[in-house]
Amino acid sequence: MWAHEAWAMGLMFVVDSLNKSFHTESGTIDVIDNLSFSVEEGQFLCIVGPSGCGKTTLLKIMCGLETPTSGNVLINGVLPNPQKQKFGVIFQEESLLPWRTVIQNVEFGQEICSGRCSLDIARKYMSLVGLVGFENYYPHQISGGMKKRVAIARALAVDPDIIMMDEPFADLDAQTRWILQKELLSVWSQLKKTVIFITHNVEEAVFLGQFVAVLTKRPATLKSLIKIDLPYPRSRLTPPFISYREKIIGMLQQEIPSI
């Protein structure tokens, strides 16, 4: 199996010939078909694919919430296990504990991971994502963008080995999304964490990722892995940016002709 060798070569995150199918009453549904790619330590990888191609299933396998039918995901050479490794997972849906204040939400991951939480660490990451002054608010009192910041601070506060995000900004308005994208890049460049960012928004993927993995329609497999050779901070209006974007949109169009 080349995965172990790959890890030896410094690849911290490896998806190796991954297959996943679900058995339902109406038969077997193949969601992921022989998917392979890898990420080096500290890299920012975006995964784009047509809607319903199995991106969320992929994320669940990557963070150990689902087991693959065959193949492996290896993080630092071992199967994903949130009880042994530290993951910072950010979901698309509302994921804050509504009965906890903002600061208590940020402390939640530490509380689970290490059994105790350090207020200093929580405060550090809160200031990193611009939440100072909102410590004692409850989630229902803050905006959608603020809630995402809290989820990001909560994920960072456990000092994760890897950050995995599943369309985290999909529900936000365009302005808030742009602000959070910039902030995410700034956090990433400061902390040097490995980030895997799933999205269906091609512009977002090109703006954020050092690499963009394009998936096919279901069952998802790797269509192309594109290196985005543009320096940060990126401008959405430069010709190279647009050409990357158009190239990827073209690939997705082949998958779903109606785009």
């Binding site: 669940k60 919430l65 009880q83 042994k84 997972v89 979901f91 994921s95 939640f108 689970i112 456990v158």
Partner: peptide, 10 residues
């Protein structure tokens, strides 16, 4: 989702 959040933290 909240259950999954707790699970991904181990």
């Amino acid at each position: 989702t909240l259950v999954n959040v707790a699970k991904t933290f181990g």
